[in-house]
């Protein structure tokens, strides 16, 4: 998982399979960077994700809450169609910008 921080935009490049097991390390790393860098925007990039269950939704929901508390907006990009379908079941589109 790579993370870049440029011009107030923190981009988290998620990779591999996202499930309840793997999401823990991803969220800890993302939250550490969020709190440390205090960006204006957090981008969660799913283009390197090969599998995702509803833990991916929890990952976005949790980061949305952390980011909102810091006054930071959240964008999600690079979702495969089936993963977008899972995200859309959650109603997250009301809170998070999907690209």
């Amino acid at each position: 998982m790579d993370i870049t921080n440029e011009n107030g935009i923190l981009t988290v490049y998620l990779t591999g399979e996202i499930d309840h097991h793997s999401a823990r390390a991803m969220r800890e790393r993302a939250d550490t960077e969020l709190v440390k860098r205090r960006p204006k925007t957090l981008i969660l990039d799913f283009s390197g994700v090969s599998f995702m269950d509803s833990s991916g939704v929890g990952l976005v929901m949790g980061r949305y809450k952390t980011a909102a508390a810091l006054g930071c907006g959240v964008q999600v990009r690079g979702l495969r169609p089936r993963d977008r379908r899972i995200m859309e079941l959650s109603g997250l589109k009301k809170l998070v910008a999907f690209q």
Binding site: R27, D53, S54, V57, G58, G62, I86, L89, S90
Partner: peptide, 21 residues
């Protein structure tokens, strides 16, 4: 039910909804 969870902020409550879907 969609979005019902007893497991805190990091769980979406979508497990059964996704299984059904």
């Amino acid at each position: 039910e969609a979005l019902y969870t007893t497991a805190g902020d990091e769980r979406s409550g979508l497990g059964f909804t996704v299984m059904e879907s």
